[in-house]
Design a protein around this nucleic acid. Sequence first.
DNA 1: CTTTAGCAAATACTATAGGATATACGGGAG
DNA 2: CTCCCGTATATCCTATAGTATTTGCTAAAG
Lengths: 227, 227
Amino acid sequence: MATSQNPPASTAIKRPPRLGDEVYNTIYAQLMSQKILPGSRISIDNLARELGVSQTPIREALSRLEAQGLVVKTHLIGFSAASQMDRTRLDQLYELRLLLEPFAARKAATLMSSEQFEALKRMTDDMRNDRGQGRVSYSEFARLDSQFHDLIAQASGNDLVQETLANLHTHVHLFRLFHHQQATSDANAEHAKLIEAFEARDQDRAEQAMRTHVERSYARFRSFFED
Amino acid sequence: MATSQNPPASTAIKRPPRLGDEVYNTIYAQLMSQKILPGSRISIDNLARELGVSQTPIREALSRLEAQGLVVKTHLIGFSAASQMDRTRLDQLYELRLLLEPFAARKAATLMSSEQFEALKRMTDDMRNDRGQGRVSYSEFARLDSQFHDLIAQASGNDLVQETLANLHTHVHLFRLFHHQQATSDANAEHAKLIEAFEARDQDRAEQAMRTHVERSYARFRSFFED
DNA sequence: CTTTAGCAAATACTATAGGATATACGGGAG
DNA sequence: CTCCCGTATATCCTATAGTATTTGCTAAAG
């Protein structure tokens, strides 16, 4: 099945791109890099003019972002970027994450392929190396951390759990970005514990390592609410 | 809070209704009652003509349904109702449900208000009474069962968990409908156990009762895949 | 002089209609 | 029987009309 859907690149015709996708990626990137601030209005008209497309693909992209909880819509008012999580929301998010992610790690410990494990290991190495470069590499750290967690969720074999965790992770990312939290060496040490457990294919240790990792992450974030 | 947002009807101004919502409810109802069969195409043009509105509100409604996983979209092809869950998907759904719903029941056992408990009790009574009327009352049973589970999730105090469970429940409903499974007296007995646990505010018993309920539900569904 | 109420213009969303293009289906030639 | 081609249908996107909200200005009252 390798070449069946890959005719020689020379003959490959360009299919009409989905404008909705392009718009989605553009807005998503702007949200994730705080070019659009939490709570600020997002005008359909302005976006249509800026991006040089009509309103329909804009609406489609914003609908998808709304389903992810990244933007909210108010009737006859319009879209705006989701406001920053409050304390209650953060608690709920981590409560859910603590239910899902240690479980995913436990399953991944037995189901993970060696290719997946190698990829995971490379990511942790890259994250450690990048950290030395200081704050400019945070976006790269965030990207790798996101991939790291997503790969574990994927290795759990449960698509629904993977999707749910991916969604939670985008909100964690936004929260971290908003509060200017740096990548910590703590996180890297916790990732290392996870790698060890996966290498040993030890379910209990993997679950426990993930639980510890998530709990510590929670503790690091909670401090932002204590004044 | 009763009258605060209900000024005298005479002065009440009519706000323009959201056509997208009306369309959403219409399509949702048709999906949930199998007027639209799983996998069948859903034409935007046809819907627009049938409902007497233009394409924009149709697309908005379908986008929301797509986010729920009830319809799928293929570029340049269009929308179609999601195909029926296969065995793998059912396994994944129940794996997730078993992570969330017993936990929700445990939390609800301590957090539930007496009003919520009374409402819950009324639902179980109604479900038992309705059952005697035979198959015509299935839709009513489904509605009450959905409310029953949603109320417990709500009482857990975690909105994210509640939303996730609500979404899972719609798919369970579709699966049950497709396989013509009747409301079982087993389910009513399992609900009764839950009620007992909530009345005693016993976390362990509530969690265990819910786990048993979900596991038995899983077993009832799994039988459809054994030929 | 400051503040508030009311009106008017601009802004932006909702919904409609129409044009360009890709897919699907059916008939005919090889 | 297979393959190619033309027609029909539906989607994707654009452009535009219709309305609700918002903003800013003016005027009047405290």
